[in-house]
């Protein structure tokens, strides 16, 4: 057997670095692209570059946006006194789809996990605390996973805001323990949102 092309290996390795994609899938995707028409690869490459160029993070809530401020933060019909704290964009998107939260969001970008090198300062927490202090925030809803890391982050936030006098709630455990918001069915997620309680 001959040596595998370095170019191919490079492609596979690049895919394998992406979250949720293992060596096997990376190989499959690479073969697929190589075997399909040029158009497919061009479209993919363009989409990635365009997203990278045009999408940025909202200055207020760290949501994805093409502008300085995202559509949600820029919508003055939304209730600025209520902030739903989420881990990432996909969780935000899940809640938005439910059309259940009339306030704003704050995307913290991960959960505290020293084992993975994620400490409080790695997350968008300072900006959250600033927002709470400077804007008229009345309610903070913590929409983080019910895992050790999610619990730790939730506790950390509530400790920091202990004296702020705002109302902090957390999603009830309708979400299965150890479960992730992204993979929760809508009914359960809705239930969890409705039953959020003082934390």
């Amino acid at each position: 057997m001959g040596k595998q092309s370095e170019i191919l290996q490079n492609l596979i390795d690049s895919f394998a670095k992406l979250p949720g994609i293992g060596k096997k899938s990376a190989r499959r995707i690479s073969y697929y692209l190589i075997n399909s028409e040029m158009k497919v690869s061009e479209k993919l490459a363009d989409a990635v570059i365009e997203a990278k160029k045009k999408l940025g993070l909202c200055m207020e809530c760290h949501n994805l946006t093409e502008h300085k401020i995202c559509d949600i933060c820029g919508d003055d019909k939304r209730d600025g006194s209520s902030i739903l704290v989420v881990e990432n964009f996909s969780d935000l998107y899940m809640f938005e789809k439910l059309n259940i939260h009339k306030g704003l969001y704050h995307v913290i970008g991960g959960l505290i996990s020293p084992l993975d090198g994620i400490v409080p300062s790695s997350l968008n927490l300072a900006s959250l605390f600033l927002r709470v202090r400077e804007k008229k925030v009345r309610e903070l809803i913590i929409g983080l996973n019910h895992s050790v890391e999610g619990d730790t982050t939730a506790l950390y936030i509530s400790e920091k805001l202990k004296d702020s006098g705002i109302n902090i709630t957390r999603l009830a455990t309708g979400i299965p323990i150890g479960g992730e918001i992204e993979f929760t069915d809508e009914v359960t997620l809705k239930q969890a949102f409705m039953e959020r309680r003082i934390f």
């Binding site: 505290i112 020293p114 400490v119 409080p120 050790v148 619990d151 730790t152 506790l155 950390y156 400790e159």
Partner: peptide, 9 residues
């Protein structure tokens, strides 16, 4: 602060 949180858990 983190130690205190972990300790409560």
């Amino acid at each position: 602060e983190l130690i205190a949180i972990y300790n409560s858990k």
